[in-house]
Design a protein around this nucleic acid. Structure first.
Lengths: 128, 128
DNA sequence: GTTCACTATATACAACATGAAACTAGTGAT
DNA sequence: ATCACTAGTTTCATGTTGTATATAGTGAAC
């Protein structure tokens, strides 16, 4: 069982903050970047100051590097500490594509729940 | 900081399977039900056979009872083992309403990500 | 010249959530 | 007797989180 688990990327959990992982992959799909720079793009996806935990973000970056979704090198900035600049790999791009499919589904399921909450009449015929 | 954390229900994480919690609250908002019965309604929200872990579901039911979002009583079914029948509380209804707001936001953020993946041109002007 | 704010990354810790598996147990059909 | 279905619980290893803490470079204000 669970052989149709393509819906689960890597057969792992899908905690919400996996969404952060996908956001990072998307941003790195657009262009190479480093942690601090990425953190400034994240409010676009709803991770505003209060909601972004930078520890979590840096941890995710290290984790997805370990599983070869991204690669990194150190670069001198001249205007502050060194930056670890990340680059998405082919494997990372494939992972991103799979996540897009999952997220489309997730969005639909959320919509279903909202509809059912706001228009209960459409589902009442199930009552006995 | 984090005082505007009404966006985080009970200040806790929002792992994806919290979505399962909200589905259960919604179903119990519609009518009283027991675990096994609820499990048969869950495919509607995307929790098909392969994707629903019944341990998780039963665990969530016990957890949300502990924090008074639902109450339960044992009932004889006559056609099998006893059933623990759950009923949503006022607190549970309030929690459900808060979650609906969160999920509407989550849906929007997912949509933003999908759009940005599929129509990168609209975001390219950011490049240097 | 030192304090402050900003830039930049990393790690340790306790708390919590998960999937998988095993377990108990009642009913009814083969 | 065995099987399939109904019904719920607990244990275990693994994984993820937020918080706090640490380090360190730059440049401006005082």
């Amino acid at each position: 069982m669970k052989e149709n688990s393509s819906i689960f990327c890597q057969n792992k959990n899908q905690p919400t903050e996996r969404f952060l992982e996908v956001c990072l992959l998307l941003l790195l799909h657009e262009k190479d970047d480093y942690g601090y720079g990425l953190s400034q793009e994240l409010p676009f996806f709803g991770f505003s100051d209060n909601e972004l935990n930078v520890s979590t973000m840096y941890r995710i970056l290290r984790r997805i590097e370990k599983i070869d979704l991204v690669e990194s090198t150190w670069e001198e900035s001249g205007l502050g500490p060194r930056r670890r600049v990340y680059r998405i790999t082919e494997k990372g791009k494939e992972e991103l594509s799979k996540w897009i499919v999952i997220l489309k589904n997730r969005k639909l399921n959320i919509q279903k729940l909202i509809d059912r909450f706001e228009r209960p009449d459409h589902y009442n015929h199930l009552e006995e």
